[in-house]
Amino acid sequence: MLFDTHTHINAEEFKEDFDDVLERADDAGVTNMIVVGFDEQTIQDAVKIIETYDYIYGAVGWHPVDAIDMTDDHLRWIEELSQHPKVVAIGEMGLDYHWDKSPADVQKDVFRKQIRLAKKVNMPIIIHNREATDDIVQILQEENAEDVGGIMHCYSADLETAKTCLDMNFYISFGGPVTFKNAKLPKEVAKEIPLNRLLVETDCPFLSPHPYRGKRNEPARVKLVAEQIAALKGISYEEIVQITSDNAKQLFSLK
């Protein structure tokens, strides 16, 4: 019953062996996943996937790295797609100060517009944060993002920030980095997050967990993330699978 809450199986990296990837996910016990579209092409591909596979749901939004490319027409398109019966979240959205393609002020504007859209259509949001924690929190607070809540995707900030996000109605999702041997902070934070606000993900094809670090990631490896979280929490693997799957279904309003 594993639920991978963040995949990019719509990426080019999966074109050659897409069916095999899904089969390995099934063998690993992955019964649901979210495929995230974050620009024009990946949104189109995400919609094709969710219309083909019953157990895969979609999120549509605009990535901060590409914020400079987003037009008002794109925003209207995302709003239209939010009415698709299998689109369950808006995102990923947020801020990314690692790359310099889109200026910070443009990223912030696009971020705010997407939060406001999510509130308009009453859907949770998926937050991408890279080297921008303080600004992300400030914008979420200023835009009253707690009205819809959502996911702090592939969480990497500290515990204090996590508590602030929990107070704003967000779930904390962990991916491959929580399994890395030198990843003290994600492990420390994961131990403290309440069970009812925990999620697991792969962010595939990125951030493959140990012992596959540096290789292409895929949904089947969310099992390794769940095993690590279970060990950190001192509960059984079966419990963490059930809990994180139930959390995802509640967040995304799935039966």
Results as ranks from 00 to 15, higher is better:
residue 240 I to C: 03
residue 132 A to N: 07
residue 85 P to S: 10
residue 41 Q to V: 09
residue 242 Q to F: 09
residue 62 W to I: 02
residue 12 E to C: 11
residue 38 F to H: 13
residue 42 T to W: 02
residue 36 V to N: 03
residue 170 F to W: 03
residue 125 I to M: 10
residue 223 K to M: 14
residue 52 T to K: 11
residue 90 I to N: 01
residue 195 L to W: 00
residue 13 E to A: 13
residue 194 P to E: 14
residue 158 D to H: 05
residue 244 T to L: 03
residue 49 I to M: 03
residue 249 K to W: 13
residue 60 V to W: 00
residue 209 P to R: 08
residue 184 K to D: 08
residue 19 D to Y: 12
residue 141 Q to S: 14
residue 81 L to Y: 03
residue 65 V to S: 12
residue 88 V to S: 02
residue 190 A to T: 07
residue 99 W to S: 14
residue 180 F to K: 02
residue 82 S to H: 11
residue 134 D to W: 14
residue 162 A to V: 12
residue 168 M to F: 13
residue 232 L to P: 09
residue 122 N to D: 04
residue 52 T to S: 05
residue 144 N to S: 08
residue 148 V to E: 09
residue 143 E to S: 13
residue 46 A to R: 00
residue 74 H to K: 15
residue 237 Y to N: 02
residue 155 Y to Q: 11
residue 15 K to F: 05
residue 165 C to N: 13
residue 75 L to E: 08
residue 46 A to M: 08
residue 161 T to N: 06
residue 39 D to P: 12
residue 149 G to M: 04
residue 110 V to M: 15
residue 30 V to I: 12
residue 128 H to Y: 05
residue 164 T to R: 11
residue 132 A to D: 08
residue 195 L to V: 08
residue 26 D to S: 06
residue 236 S to E: 06
residue 34 I to A: 04
residue 96 D to C: 10
residue 174 F to Y: 06
residue 24 R to Y: 03
residue 100 D to I: 14
residue 167 D to N: 15
residue 25 A to D: 01
residue 113 K to S: 15
residue 34 I to E: 01
residue 72 D to E: 15
residue 130 R to K: 10
residue 114 Q to K: 08
residue 67 A to N: 03
residue 188 E to I: 12
residue 213 R to P: 00
residue 121 V to E: 02
residue 200 V to E: 01
residue 188 E to K: 04
residue 255 K to R: 07
residue 59 A to F: 02
residue 133 T to R: 09
residue 94 G to Q: 03
residue 220 A to D: 09
residue 241 V to A: 04
residue 12 E to L: 11
residue 171 Y to S: 04
residue 34 I to R: 02
residue 79 E to S: 05
residue 122 N to W: 05
residue 154 C to N: 03
residue 245 S to L: 01
residue 231 A to M: 10
residue 15 K to N: 11
residue 31 T to A: 15
residue 236 S to K: 08
residue 49 I to H: 00
residue 97 Y to T: 10
residue 122 N to Q: 09
residue 15 K to Q: 07
residue 144 N to K: 14
residue 58 G to A: 07
residue 116 R to M: 12
residue 180 F to L: 10
residue 148 V to A: 09
residue 5 T to N: 01
residue 107 Q to E: 08
residue 66 D to M: 09
residue 249 K to M: 07
residue 12 E to P: 13
residue 92 E to H: 03
residue 77 W to R: 10
residue 125 I to Q: 04
residue 178 V to C: 01
residue 211 P to F: 06
residue 144 N to L: 06
residue 149 G to Q: 12
residue 177 P to H: 01
residue 35 V to W: 04
residue 236 S to L: 01
residue 170 F to E: 15
residue 115 I to Q: 03
residue 51 E to L: 05
residue 202 T to W: 04
residue 146 E to T: 12
residue 38 F to I: 11
residue 25 A to R: 00
residue 205 P to T: 10
residue 130 R to W: 04
residue 23 E to V: 07
residue 125 I to C: 12
residue 139 I to C: 11
residue 194 P to I: 07
residue 232 L to S: 10
residue 199 L to S: 05
residue 168 M to N: 06
residue 120 K to Q: 07
residue 20 D to L: 14
residue 159 L to D: 13
residue 160 E to I: 13
residue 69 D to Y: 08
residue 41 Q to N: 10
residue 177 P to G: 04
residue 140 L to C: 09
residue 17 D to E: 06
residue 185 L to E: 05
residue 81 L to H: 03
residue 20 D to Y: 14
residue 246 D to W: 10
residue 135 D to C: 11
